[in-house]
Simulated assay, not measured.
Amino acid sequence: MRRPPGLSARMKLALSYAGFLAVAGALLLSVVWVYLLRYVPNTSRGLLGISPNRYLLVHTFAPAAAVAMAFLLVFGLVGGWLLAGRMLAPLTSITAAARRAGNGSLSHRIGMEGRRDEFRELSDAFDTMLERLESHVAEQRRFAANASHELRTPLAISQTLLDVAREDPTRNRDEVLARLRVVNTRAIGLTEALLLLSRSDRGTFGREDVDLSLVAEDAAETLLHLAERRGIKLDVTGGTARTRGSAELLLRMVTNLVQNAIVHNLPVGGTVTVHTEARGDASVVRVENTGQPLPPELVPTLVEPFRRGAERARTDEHAGVGLGLAIVHSVVRAHDGTLDLVARPAGGLLVTVRLPGLP
């Protein structure tokens, strides 16, 4: 928005300081003038009926008062200009950092020193904002690069299969079509996951009352066949846990957690337990599964996009596209909740989701 130029903040402060000093000086001179008139005798009348003593006082006091007022105005302007410049100096650093950020440089920090005051708090808040923006931009760049790589892989495979089919007319047509279908299905799944992740990040969804215990039962029923085929015992326990949000996104969140717990489990005799409960003012969903021991330093990175086990990345049809826990994290964040991942000492993972509850 273009606006006409005006006085700078420094000039406004200088004029305000000079004006205040001039008013204070005028009041002080008025008090002195009243005091002098009170104690100067007025016994005789001179020219125009004015006492010679008071006439002399006027001619003596008025020039001195005018000089004093002029000095106060000049002193107020100069002193106000210098003081305002000193007081507003931190804003110069903040403005320079804001302009750098506007030009795309997010690595600069103000790092203001000194004791905490309003400018220091503003500077620290601006540095925190820049740090979060830089982290978010870096995360988005990594996500875009990973998404491009993941989308390029099935397209490249499809292109290779088509080239082979064209160069070798004798090749089994049904086999090529079946492989193309698998690759195409994976590409569609990845695209849908990316769209869902984008939707949950934006928070553009309707909200309604949702019982997480019913959501957990729906997710378990959907994945029961997968659990039975892998020999995984799937249990749903707990009671009503009501929250407010998108039923579709919350169902996808729990489904991703349960599917992840089934896929990343023991080869034989594994278990998955889904528990829901209302705890205080929060509604809790807890998904616990057996599995191989996880290094503690690996657990915080599991919510990053495209983090998955390399051994299942290409061979397991249910391994997903590496966005399962990333979508869970995004959905939880969009619903103002918290997500905790803890590696079980005996192996496997314990995932706890806390969402704002309803009475």
Rank of each mutant, 00 (worst) to 15 (best):
A68W: 11
R99D: 06
S107F: 03
A70P: 04
L36R: 02
L88N: 12
R86H: 14
A97I: 00
E113I: 02
R45Y: 12
E113C: 02
R120K: 14
L48V: 08
V74E: 05
S8L: 01
R109I: 00
P63H: 02
Y17S: 12
Y17M: 13
L7P: 00
P63R: 02
A66L: 14
I94Y: 15
Y35D: 05
F71G: 07
A26W: 11
A18T: 01
V32P: 02
L36Y: 03
V78C: 06
L13Y: 14
L73C: 06
M112H: 00
A70F: 10
I110M: 02
L106I: 03
P90F: 09
A96C: 10
G25C: 11
L37F: 06
L57Y: 03
M11K: 05
G6S: 11
S44L: 10
L56F: 14
S107D: 05
V23S: 05
Y55E: 09
V31M: 12
A70C: 09
A70Q: 08
A22S: 11
L72N: 03
L21D: 05
A98L: 12
R116V: 00
R99C: 01
L15A: 08
S16P: 03
G111Q: 01
V78E: 05
A84N: 05
G25W: 07
L88R: 11
N42Y: 04
A9T: 09
G80R: 09
A66F: 13
L27F: 15
R45E: 12
V31A: 15
A22V: 11
A24M: 07
L28R: 13
P41Y: 05
A9M: 09
L122K: 08
S93W: 11
V31L: 14
V74W: 09
E118L: 14
L48D: 09
L13F: 14
L15G: 04
A24W: 05
G80N: 10
G85P: 02
G19N: 01
F20S: 14
E118G: 13
G49V: 00
A101G: 12
Y17R: 10
L88G: 13
V58P: 05
G80S: 12
N42P: 01
G85I: 04
W33H: 14
L57D: 01
I50N: 07
A9C: 08
L77R: 03
G25K: 08
P41H: 05
N103E: 05
R116M: 00
G46T: 02
G49F: 03
E113N: 02
L73S: 04
A101W: 08
S16G: 12
S93R: 12
G104E: 01
G104K: 00
S44C: 07
E121M: 14
H59G: 13
L122V: 09
F71S: 07
E118D: 15
K12E: 10
K12Y: 11
I110P: 01
L48I: 07
F20L: 14
V23E: 04
L27P: 11
